[in-house]
Each structure stands twice: as structure tokens, then as C-alpha cells.
Amino acid sequence: MAQATFRIWKGQGDSAGFKDFVTDATVGMVVLDAVHQIQAESDPTLACRWNCKAGKCGSCSAEINGNPRLMCMTRLDQLDLTVPVIIEPMKSFPHVRDLVTDVSWNFRVKKAIKPFKPRKPDAPDGTWRIQQQDVERVQEFRKCIECFLCQDVCHVLRDHHKHPEFAGPRHFVYTAALEMHPLDTENRLGQMKDAGGIGYCNITKCCTKVCPEHITITDNAIIPLKERVTDEYYDPITRFFKIFKTNQ
């Protein structure tokens, strides 16, 4: 049976650093299996977050060989096991211990975004009628599992630490899902421009590349929102014509 070395970030605060663990790599294993095996065999104190092991809860986010990924969806046969596999916690959030980070900032941001506000019901029984074609566009955004890998890779948070001024790709996806919803009547464009800082995004598409749900974050959520913000705040011609136009 082949053995593999895992170089895992271990510890807390300034005393944290890489520690090598060797364990067996068997057919079909994913990185999360290896971490569990290491917990069982050599270090029961090694901390990591996980829940479903099926790529659906978004808990096991980490950086594997420098790339933000879900540990449970990264198979060992995709990695070069002749050199140590590097596993680190996400870098855009406060570190707690070992592979665990505190992602609660994301939930605070989400709470601040104006909630869904549907138009008046279409039928007397309080229900609405919408066309499949119209909801299809936002369906993609609803696949988000809140793994925050896109937030982790985004350099606006990762390198520039604009957390107080920038909502991040996950929340642009969330806003796009509400903003483009055929029933919604709320306007979140001012919020996106100012508190959400969508202008900080320089469309490098790193978020799209890491999304385990393959949401086309940049092209389908961020750029259309940027265009709507431009309509509303920067483009003098559309601002003028908006007086006559409806976006419904």
C-alpha cells in the first residue's frame, strides 16, 4: 500500500506551523479521509471542520497545495503523492486552530443585505405566477453551499483586507439571486455600490475558478450587477432614460 505525506498547518496563533504526517493512501480516498485517518492514527487533536463528506455542506473548505478546495471533494488520485500534500486553513478569515477558521464574518455580511421583497400576490389565494424562463437565470445562484472558497481566494479580501468595505463574491451571488428574481421589488444597487464595494472587484475570475458548485460567479452575477450599478449611478444616459423605463 502506498504511503503519502501530508504537510498540515497545525497550532494556534504565532506558534502555528506546518507539521508532516504520514499515512496510507488507498484507492478512492479523498483528502478529508486522509485527515480523519491522521486524527485516528497519529494526532487526535488535529482540528478540522466537516459535516457531510458529500460536497454539500460547505464545511470542509481548506487550501490544498495552495488552491482553495473542499477537502471532501479532492481525491488523492488528483494529487501528486510523491511530494508532501500541503493542507492549510483558509487565509481570508481569522484563524482559530489547525485547519479551522472563523467564517462568521460572512454571516454578518449576509444579514446586512436587504431581504427578498416580493410584489403583491398575483392571485387572490396569495400565490404568484412566474415563468420558468424567468427563474432559470437565478437558479444557478441558488446552488451555493456557502463554502466561502470564493471569498477565500478573492484578493480583495485575501490580500487587501477590504472586509469592512467589500461584501465578496459569495454575497454578490446572493444579491444577484435576489436582484434578478422576477418577483423581487427591492433595489440593492446602492447597497452593492457603497457598503458592498462591488467596484473593488477587478474581475480576475478567481472566484469562478474555485467554486465547487461551478457557479459562473463573475460573468453571470458580478458583471451583470456591475452593469446595473453603472446604469443606476454612473451612466448619464441610462440615468436619464430610467425615468421612462422599468426593469420588470
Binding site: S92, A112, I113, D159, H161, H163, P164
Partner: peptide, 10 residues
């Protein structure tokens, strides 16, 4: 967002 402050080193 302004109500969700967080400061981290680069």
C-alpha cells in the same frame, strides 16, 4: 459591509 468589520494582516 460597514456593519461587518474584520481586520486581518496581509
Amino acid at each position: 459591509m460597514s456593519h461587518a468589520d474584520l481586520r486581518l494582516p496581509q
